[in-house]
Design a protein around this nucleic acid. Sequence first.
DNA 1: GAATTCATGATTTTT
DNA 2: TCATGAATTC
Length: 795
Amino acid sequence: MTSSSKASGKESGASGSENKRSAPRNSGTPALADTILDGLSDRQKEAASYTDGPLLIVAGPGSGKTRVMAHRLAYLTGSEGVPPYRILAVTFTNKAARELRERCQRLVPTAADQLRVFTFHSFCALMLRFDGEYVGLKQGFTIYDDDDQARVIRRILQEMDIDPKQFPVGQLRSIISSSKNKNILPPAFQQNAETYREEVAGRVYEKYQEALSRSNAADFDDLLLKAFQLLENQPEILDKYQRRYEHILVDEFQDTNPLQFNIARLLAAKHKNICVVGDPDQSIYSWRHADPTNLTDFRATFPDAKIVTLDQSYRSTQVILEAADAVIANNEDRMEKTLWTENPRGDRVSVAEVYDEEGEARAVINEVDRLVKQHDLSRDQIAVMYRINAQSRSLEVACNRSGVPYRLVGGVKFYERREVKDILSFLRLVLNPADDAALERIINVPARGISDRSVTELRRAAATHETPLLDAVLSVQDEKNPLGVSLSKRAANSVVAFAELVERLVEQSLSLQPQELIDLAMERSGYVRWLQEDKETGEERMENLRELRGSAEQYSGGDPREQLAEFLENVALVSDVDGVRTGNPFAATQADVGQEAITLITLHQAKGLEFEAVFMVGMEEGLLPHSRSVEDPAQMEEERRLCYVGMTRAKRWLYMLHTFQRRFRGSLSPSMPSRFLMELPEPLVNAQTVRSRASQTETRKDEMWSRRAAMAPAAARSASQPGLEFAAGDRVRHSHFGEGVVVSVKAVPGDVEATVAFSGNGVKRLMLGFAKLERSGAGVGADSGSSSTSEKGGE
DNA sequence: GAATTCATGATTTTT
DNA sequence: TCATGAATTC
């Protein structure tokens, strides 16, 4: 987010030297064009100002991609005179969209107001809001999230009497999702079903689509799928959008899936002014059906496309770039590209082993401390990156313990909180009475005497009449009970009360603004009282609802139902909220807005960001690469790209940590250093720079630091020559146990174990890969200097 | 019908 | 370990 400030200084130097070569190829106003492109390198200028048709920009990390895109937009509007509203800029994530928007805002404030940057999903939702009727979506349709999807599928399994254990909901969901992204609809799916499982999945898929259709709902994939169908089948609508958008810009192209590419392709078919930007080495979303072959497809679709490669990094030091390149070079399936930089050589990459995740967190914090003190680094410029969210826990705990302010990115999303979803479900139901998933969610929340059995009966009645669940609810209220719902008197009373609640909300939705409707829903549903009774989490959840109310406030002033629809759409498509702090129990020192804080973030989310110092933690087999990826070479390559993304976030300092053992799912297990660490060229690595002060003040044996030697495939080493470094009888010294004599050395899986008799400390068994063992007297050890820079401040 | 306990099971990344 | 769903008790 702060990349521009840092990058600009260097980039202006780059452009100054070679400014005279190319006059702008387009007439326009050369003077103006020069100003707009000022500060860009030649390559960047080329990318920003090429407007003669399809353009593919391959942009390595730190090559100023967003900068170029922003300048391109400025160039189009400023120099080429394209009205901003005739440009369609699409990105993959909200974050990327926001960043691009902000960049443009700074560059061309006037045009930026008219320029809209969409995510694919939000753009599709927009098209469907106007013309969804053509593809079976009525006004005010609901967007179903994963949770709703799961709910629908679970119910279908119930109806079909399928055991969810044999057909896990999650699995079915991903089958359905991937089918949609390949444009395979239920009939085709069933046609191609070969196995019994596929056949069942096909039936579930079919039922699922029927359910969504009846509920006037679309899941995330439907947004893309239906938008595509709309454009493909309705020439006049396609024409409308083709005319409207003279230029199309697609960011993070490597993350788009075939469906998204097809949408872009259709939209661009007329003008052919399509510019896509991406880096195949940073494709980390294949699990969401992103398909990096889109890049090759792009060239096939637009054979005359111009290709510009941005391979100068303005971000990282040479060492970091080389290290990252060495890792990514191990990917077979890859468009070769080597980054270079004029930046300084820089420090080596610090690789260190720590005892466990606690030690890991301590080491990070101590080093953060040192960076802040010795290099006057702002904590804003420091990030800790990890593979899975669960890893943030130990870091948070440690930050809290030592009072280091931090900012946790991601985690439990605000809009995914239970209470938030509950209240939103009331609003959803108000807007779309067919929204069964919403109804099911809140029919008995808070408890109002409608049991599961009653709900089942309601569902049965609704199903036999093929009508929304709410109709069954209303039927109970009706004396004639047209749907023939059969309930006990008591249950019926409860249902009637609920029906009245919904009716009242619907009535009021005509006149109340969204936030007022939230108030009403909270009050009338008994939610407020319910939370008040809950001493444990009630207050916190209430706070979240106040927050929700606050976020609804900006959707007021217009037609209430319109505003409500917009609010709900936004909520569905924008999962993160700016400035909303997560109310997690560790949030004691979670930083306030504006306070300098280190960033805790997953590798995925870190894409596109940069920091002076980056700590990659959990560099272990099973974590990075993730255990789920080890079997499949393609997935393994994606893990490597993920590693690459992490490494290339660092400007000056890169740390890669792994533990000796890690607590995982409750139990302790030994960890193996990530294979990616072994792909780092030795001369670029320093295994001794990180030190934990805690190791001195607390139990010293807590922390043990590995030598680079430990990274070499230990099994191979020990098999051929066990005890390469030590043999029985050697006199050794250990940092903690002191002087001793090696009793025996033997190979164990992944390492070499030495049994050493220490004078005064007894006999210990040590892993040579991890233990800090030196030959005593001879002093040959690879890292005899045990003191390091950071110890100075720590004492 | 609701609350409590118990069991189980699942754990990547995001729109 | 933690969260969610099912079984059991009130």
